[in-house]
């Protein structure tokens, strides 16, 4: 049971490589440290603390993208007007991740690599076509977030890689929607949620807690692209059944998830009255 304190990202990569990918990168700790005293299997591990690496905490802009460093917290983005104005869903989702205490520690990148199907930060990033920038002693790699997950808790990040940044292309969006449906209004784990955007790049509809991974709903996107007539929430159901496979679990039921997905999506995108 020990901790490694790298002084910069390069050293962090070296430490991770030296551990043969066994060290556990730790940023905000809002997932990894839940019930810490009972996590016996984790107590023997080596943790690589990323929470103090200044270069990961940077929010930068390029001509074509917003670049969130791998250690940027929700709270940082909530306090950054330029980010909230350009990517309003980051504010909307960020405010719904836990409450202030979690927002202050939790990071966007951590949410991605925790690989939970219920991740609240991932749908909006994916709906903005985010690209994950990974780095290791072996070099750099970029993976579109929509191709990042392979299955339940499975992802394309290799154990020796760290998230250097998450890059969001700057686009003009005429639709930006995010819904989180949880058991209560604040500080709750999502029963189902989605983000949807439309830009010159087309439609993006991303669902969480509806499948083994956060995922794009390509059939729904296709319907929207083709302008298929949607008059009632039920008209979305065939596509939803194709795109996602919700389950019954401790937090909700498959039936509720599907039905409410169709209804909230319908009202968000098609209802005249808003």
């Amino acid at each position: 049971m020990t901790m490694l304190f790298p002084s910069d990202l390069e050293e962090a990569c070296e430490m991770l490589a030296a551990s043969d990918g066994k060290a556990v990168p730790l940023a905000g700790g809002t997932d990894l440290l839940v019930h810490w005293p009972q996590r016996f299997e984790d107590h023997g591990r080596t943790f690589l603390d990323l929470s103090q690496l200044a270069e990961l905490r940077a929010i930068r802009w390029s001509d074509s993208a917003l670049i969130l460093g791998g250690g940027v917290t929700y709270w940082q983005t909530l306090g950054d007007r330029a980010v909230c104005d350009a990517f309003p869903l980051l504010e909307k989702a960020g405010r719904q991740v836990g409450a202030v205490q979690i927002q202050a520690r939790g990071t966007w990148a951590g949410n991605i690599v925790n690989a939970s199907p219920a991740a609240d930060g991932v749908p909006v990033l994916m709906a903005y076509d985010a690209v994950v920038e990974l780095v290791s002693t072996q070099g750099e790699e970029e993976i579109p977030l929509s191709e990042f997950y392979l299955g339940y808790k499975q992802m394309r990040r290799r154990p020796n890689q760290l998230v250097r940044a998450v890059r969001l292309p700057r686009r003009r969006h005429d639709v930006e929607v995010f819904e989180k449906i949880g058991p209560r209004r604040a500080q709750a784990i999502t029963k189902l949620g989605f983000a949807a955007t439309h830009s010159a790049a087309g439609w993006r509809v991303v669902a969480n807690s509806m499948a083994p991974t956060v995922c794009r709903c390509r059939t729904l996107e296709g319907m929207l692209e083709h302008g298929s007539p949607i008059r009632r929430p039920e008209d979305l159901m065939p596509a939803i059944r194709q795109d996602v496979s919700p389950i019954d679990d401790i937090r909700s039921t498959a039936q509720y998830r599907q039905k409410v997905f169709s209804r909230t999506l319908f009202h968000a995108l098609f209802s005249d009255e808003k």
Binding site: A99, P183, R184, R185, A186, Q187, A188, I189, I250
Partner: peptide, 11 residues
Amino acid sequence: LTNYIIPTSDD
């Protein structure tokens, strides 16, 4: 407390 839901101030 994550799964047994009591009201927060916002509920």
